[in-house]
Computed example of a mutant assay.
Amino acid sequence: MSGKHLSDYDYPLEAERIAQEPALERDHARLMVVNRRTGELLHRRFFEITEFLRPGDLLALNDTRVIPARLHAVKEKGSEIEILLLAGLGDNRWEALIRGKVARGTRVILRTGEQGVVESLNPDGKRVIRFFMEQDFMTYLQHHGGVPLPPYINRNGDNRYSVLDRERYQTIYAKTPGAVAAPTAGLHFTEGLLEKIRGMGVQIVFVTLHVGYGTFKPVTVEDISAHRMDEESYAIGGEAVEAVHDAVREGRRVIAVGSTSARTLESAVDQGGRIVRASGRTGLFIYPGYRFRVVKGLVTNFHLPRSTLLMLTAAFAGKDLLDRSYQEARGMDYRFYSYGDAMLIL
């Protein structure tokens, strides 16, 4: 199968396969290990990833931190809306997705009484909203914002999950605030597992890509090459730059934890795998036919049909092998999506 058409990325999935909660322990999720050379599929628990790593490998993780970007409000006339903040524009102005009908000039009232106004409606479905408040807006979010869980995780107003989600929809190494969705492949790591990996002689570096609308924006064109991703900001620190350069020069494996780490590295390098743009914005869309310059291994979750995440994974694993992997995962009751199980593709 070519993988050039949107319909190539459909697959059936029963609702019960969509994980509503994380594994009881982060590193006890299931792990499918996919060998691109032999086509072999192995089944482990995530903490057994060490079986497949070797001294000299470089593991790149995304240290973006998810902000509590979900707000509930009512319009002046009383109907409820839900706001998902996407990107700050300065002066308390935010690009956002709004669930509920609004128009330019619609005034909204947050649950705490603070207000905002919709300034513009963009053709792509995003809105620009300005909030009016004296306190620092990021501080306000920390106290009153909700975890921006994807819509397929159903909480239905059940507050019992609020503490769990604030802890578990965040990697343990999250550092730099700015993401409105978690880099979910990293959710499986614990401090103990990272220490064990370091002790094996595996080098661990951190990159930053603030996961935004570009990552989960729906693909709406049948010819996927016509899809355009929204840009997201990224940065790679000096130590990570040198570590990646050394690994590439010495022929050691660079393993990206998550599609966002993979896109960060691939956006930053030239044809020879040397990082030439250590920071900036990227709209890199990776789909079958793309030639990876630096990434030699990928840790990733099981993704939604028709998503750019699934297309990137197909580009790395090969479309036919990925299809077989997903079919086997469904048959063996793997858990899918953000809180679900993981793959290691080598």
Rank of each mutant, 00 (worst) to 15 (best):
G272E: 13
S120Y: 03
R252N: 15
I81V: 15
I224N: 06
M343R: 07
A342D: 04
A181H: 12
V211P: 05
G272K: 12
A329G: 05
R44V: 01
G113K: 11
I83A: 02
G100K: 09
G105Y: 10
Q170D: 08
F292H: 15
S79L: 07
L265Y: 14
I83R: 03
N159Y: 04
G258F: 12
L141C: 08
P177E: 10
V202M: 03
R17H: 02
F336S: 00
G297F: 13
Y140W: 15
D8I: 01
G78M: 06
L193S: 08
R277T: 09
R274T: 14
A69V: 03
N156H: 10
P55A: 05
V221C: 04
A87E: 15
I204W: 08
K217N: 08
Q327E: 15
A235K: 11
M343C: 08
Y334M: 01
K126H: 11
Y173G: 04
N301P: 06
V257D: 07
I255W: 10
L110M: 11
I172T: 10
E76F: 11
T106E: 11
S2G: 13
V221G: 01
R306P: 03
V219S: 02
G280H: 02
M1Q: 13
I286P: 09
G88N: 14
V207I: 12
L310Y: 06
S225K: 14
Q20L: 00
R26I: 11
E231K: 13
G3D: 07
E232F: 11
T112Y: 03
Q135K: 13
I98V: 15
A317P: 05
T208Q: 04
G186K: 03
R277V: 07
L322Q: 10
Y173R: 08
G39V: 11
